[in-house]
Design a binder for these strands. Sequence first.
DNA 1: GAAATATATAACCAATCAGTTATATGTCAA
DNA 2: TTGACATATAACTGATTGGTTATATATTTC
Lengths: 103, 103
Amino acid sequence: MEAVYKAISDPNRRAVLDLLMLGDQTVSELLGHFNFSQPALSKHLRVLREAGLVTARSDGRSRRYALKPERLRTVAEWVRHYERFWNERLDGLGALLDEETKP
Amino acid sequence: MEAVYKAISDPNRRAVLDLLMLGDQTVSELLGHFNFSQPALSKHLRVLREAGLVTARSDGRSRRYALKPERLRTVAEWVRHYERFWNERLDGLGALLDEETKP
DNA sequence: GAAATATATAACCAATCAGTTATATGTCAA
DNA sequence: TTGACATATAACTGATTGGTTATATATTTC
């Protein structure tokens, strides 16, 4: 619940999620896209796993990671509450025009 | 751009934003809702300001904070990319059914 | 102008973070 | 069964975080 926000606060972890949108990937495949070490990626993956954002299954001697986006829905719903603020009241001007044209 | 995700990764800062949805508030008013110190809140507000999520204007001897949600749109758009994953392919079963009933 | 009020900043601290290198674990191939 | 490969974990490190107390700054009130 809370861990999700921490998990997506790191740009590299968001990049991992973005990559997994293209389909399941092994650690090696993912690693190809970054220039930090393999243990660093392993730690990011653990954070994502513990936040419930990805799943892993062993496949031969490699592990295949998959997106598990349900928890992102929480985030989607939280930000959705703010939608009306960038629709209505487009920073004063919009509100003013709305007022003017109300009746 | 990037600071926004860090800013909303803290539950107290998300709470501040939620409070500001109800309308502009002074620091004292906001402080009433938390049980940490005034400087702690001041620091959270600074993070939110620097992330571009709130604005502040001096009003007498107090400061009135207001929501400035445009940057949250970035987040909304990022998570929106994942929407299709919790619609289509409802974890295997849905995909299977889709396959079955394809034609 | 002195005291009170509202907020921000400084200096500090313990905990967490994101990376590193070295090592352990498990699986495949020869 | 030995060696190579793929991944995870351990132990360490410097930077960042979220809080604290003490202090500075600005505004109002008396």
